[in-house]
Design a protein around this nucleic acid. Structure first.
Lengths: 348, 348
DNA sequence: ATTAGCACTCTCAAGGCGAGAGTGCTAAAA
DNA sequence: TTTTAGCACTCTCGCCTTGAGAGTGCTAAT
C-alpha cells in the first residue's frame, strides 16, 4: 500500500494539514500559494487526480477542492506522522498539573480527562483503572435507622463499592462490627473464587454479608471497565462540522449512553495497535455514531493486572500529529501512577 | 398581578400549551380551530392584544402568531398549573424502578437522573445527598509498593473519600493497621471540630493520618453539594430551538462546567419555593447560559442534616404541567430513601 | 361586547442570475 | 517523458425578486 511517490505523500500531507486547519476543501491554487511549492498548480492537480483515483482524496462536488477520505487519513496517520513524541514543554505542563494533584486520588481521573481535552482540543474519555480479579480488603457495616445496613466494601487497589443489606430484624451495631471483623480476618486478600470456596458460616448475619460481598465482587469483575470520565464535549461541538445536522446529537448520544462507550472501548482495545495508540477513523463502517468522527485510544496500567483506557474523540478532521503523542504520553503517565499506588499488595 | 380575566387566562394557557407542543408561533385562527373555542378569531385577537400589552405574549415579527414571554410562562406556572399531582401510573412506574434497585446504593443517583430525564423529556441534574457536618466512621490504610499509602475514609452516612499519603519511610502494613485501629476508636462518630480538638498524637504516623483525615472532612464540608449526576442531554439537544445557533453549545457547556452548575444549584435553593419546587425561567437575567432555557429544581433529604438537589433543565418551552409534579415526586421519593438509609447513626 | 370584513405587513420558499473557485484536458515547453 | 500554461466547462453560493400564505389591527355592523 506504500505505493505513493514522495511528492504524492507531500501533497496528501499538505491537503490533510490544510483541511484540518480550515475545514474547507482545498484546491491546487491554494496549496501552491500557502506552502510556496515549487511546482505549478497543474502538476498539483495531476497528482491530486492520482490521489483521488487511489481513494485518498475526494471532491465534495465537481468543482470544489479536495478533501481527505477515511483512507487518506489512515494513510496519513500510519505513514506520515506516526513516529513523533510530544514536545518537551507540553509534557512538562502536564506532568506539573499531575504533580500538584498527586495526593488527591479522587481527582486523578477527572484531571486526566480535563487535560486530555484541553491539549487535544477535542472530547476526552478516561476510564478508571480496573482489575479483572478483585482481592478483598475490608468490609464495613454501617447501621441505619431500621433494619437496613449500608455495606461498604473496599478492595485492595482501593476500589470501593456500596450496597444495602436488609435484615430480617434489627441488629445492634456491635454485633455487626464483630461479624465484619470476623469476615475481614477470613477474607483478607482473597479472590472471588477463594471466598466462594469458604464453607458457609454458621451465623446467618455473616452468611448474608458474605453473599452480598461475593455478589459485589462478581459484579465488579463482570464490568468491562471502571467508571468513565468525560470532558471537553464542547470542544467538538464547536467544530464547524457539528454546527448543524444531527451529527452533534449523535455525538452527544454516544457520550451519554455509557454502554455504547463501553462497547467502543472494549472492542477497540483488542485490535492491533500503533505505537500503543489506536486510531479509529470514521467508525470503520462499524460505528454508525461516529460517521464523521475519529477516536484515538490507548490502554494504560499493568496488562493483565489492572488496566484502564483513555482516549480522545473528535471530528475526523483532527490534528493527529498532536493528538496521538498526547494520548500516548497521558497513557504512560497514568501507567506510572497506577503502578506506583495501585499495586504492591499483590506481592505480599 | 392576578389581573387577568378568566378568558384571558384560558387563552394564555392555550397559547402556552400549543406552543410547547408545536414550537411554532400560534395565531388566533389556529387556536380557535384546534380547541373548538366558541368565540371568533377576532375576539381571540383582541384578547391576545391585551395579553401582549401586559407583557405575557409577544410576536416574533409583525405578522406572526404569538409566543409566550418569560412573564407569560411565569404567570402560567404560578397561576395555572401549580396545584397538581403526578398521575398515578407514572408514580407507580417510577416507584417500581426504584424498588428494583433498592439494594444498589451506587445506582440510585444515576437511576434518579435517568428516570427524571426520561419522564420530563429534558436534561436532568441530580446531586448526591450531602451533609453539612461530617461524622467520622472509619479509616482504612492500604499499603502500596513504595512509601505511598492509600487512605480510605468512610463517614457515617456512607460518604467515602480517598487520599494518598506519602510517608518518609516505608511502614509495615501491621503498624498501619494498628494506627488506623487506634484512630478509629478515638474518632468514631466525631465531627470535624471534635477531631480537631483531639490532643496531637505522639506517634508521627497517626499524626499524619489525622491531618489528612481532617483535611478530607473539611473539604467534604466545604463542598456545596455531593457529586453531580446528569442525564438526558440529548433530549434537549433534539429540541428544535437548539438545532442551530450556538445555544446548544452553551447548554452543553453549562452541563460540562460543574462549577457553573454548582453555582446555579447553590444560588437557587435559597430562594422562595413553590410547593417545594422552584422554577427558574429564562435565567431571570442572571444566567447568560440559559437565555432560552428553564430549570425546575427541588431539594430533597432532611433539611439541615443531609440534603441534595435535583432538577430538570430544558427549553423555556417546557411542559411544566408534567415536569413540575415529576420533579416534586422524585424529590419526595429520594427524601424517603435518604431518611431510611442515610441517618440513624445520628441518634445514637 | 362580539364579530365579520378588509387592507396591510411580514416571512418564507422557490426560481433566476452572476461571480468565483476549481477542475480536466490539450498542446506546448523543458 | 515530465512539467506547465491556457482554456472551456461545471458547480456552488450568495443575492435578488416574486408570489403565496399566514396573521394582524382596525372599523363598522350586529
Amino acid at each position: 500500500m506504500n505505493d505513493l511517490t514522495e511528492r504524492q505523500r507531500l501533497i496528501l500531507a499538505l491537503v490533510v494539514r490544510h483541511y484540518t486547519e480550515t475545514a474547507q476543501p482545498v484546491g491546487s491554487q491554494r496549496l501552491v500559494d500557502c506552502y510556496k511549492l515549487n511546482m505549478s498548480t497543474a502538476t498539483v492537480r495531476n497528482e491530486m487526480g492520482m490521489l483521488t483515483e487511489c481513494g485518498y482524496l475526494r471532491q465534495p462536488h465537481t468543482s470544489a477542492g479536495r478533501v481527505p477520505t477515511e483512507e487518506g487519513y489512515r494513510y496519513f496517520v500510519t505513514h506520515v506522522v506516526y513516529p513523533s513524541d510530544l514536545p518537551e514543554p507540553a509534557r512538562d505542563t502536564i506532568s506539573h498539573q499531575f504533580y500538584q494533584a498527586r495526593q488527591d486520588v479522587e481527582v486523578w481521573m477527572p484531571l486526566a480527562a480535563s487535560i486530555l481535552a484541553q491539549h487535544s482540543r477535542a472530547a476526552s474519555i478516561v476510564t478508571a483503572p480496573h482489575s479483572e480479579r478483585s482481592h478483598y480488603k475490608h468490609v464495613e457495616l454501617i447501621s441505619t435507622q431500621g433494619r437496613q445496613v449500608l455495606m461498604v466494601l473496599v478492595m485492595t487497589g482501593g476500589e470501593v463499592s456500596q450496597q444495602i443489606l436488609t435484615l430480617a430484624e434489627p441488629v445492634a451495631q456491635e454485633r455487626m462490627s464483630a461479624a465484619a471483623d470476623r469476615l475481614n480476618q477470613i477474607c483478607l486478600g482473597r479472590t472471588t473464587e477463594e471466598i466462594a470456596a469458604i464453607p458457609p458460616r454458621a451465623d446467618s448475619l455473616e452468611k448474608d454479608i458474605l453473599t452480598l460481598v461475593l455478589q459485589d465482587m462478581n459484579r465488579g469483575e463482570q464490568r468491562v471497565s471502571g467508571e468513565i470520565y468525560l470532558d471537553g464535549l464542547t470542544n467538538v461541538l464547536s467544530e464547524p462540522e457539528f454546527l448543524e445536522s444531527g451529527d452533534a446529537r449523535r455525538a452527544v448520544h454516544l457520550f451519554e449512553e455509557r454502554s455504547l462507550l463501553q462497547d467502543l472501548l472494549a472492542r477497540t482495545t483488542n485490535n492491533a495497535t500503533v505505537g500503543g495508540v489506536q486510531v479509529l477513523i470514521g467508525g470503520e463502517g462499524k460505528w454508525e455514531e461516529l460517521k464523521q468522527c475519529s477516536v484515538v485510544l490507548a490502554r494504560y496500567g499493568i496488562p493483565g493486572l489492572i488496566t484502564g483506557t483513555l482516549g480522545v474523540f473528535g471530528p475526523m478532521r483532527m490534528p493527529y500529529a498532536r493528538t496521538i503523542p498526547t494520548v500516548r504520553f497521558m497513557a504512560d503517565l497514568l501507567s506510572g501512577l497506577v503502578s506506583e499506588t495501585m499495586v504492591g499488595d499483590e506481592n505480599e
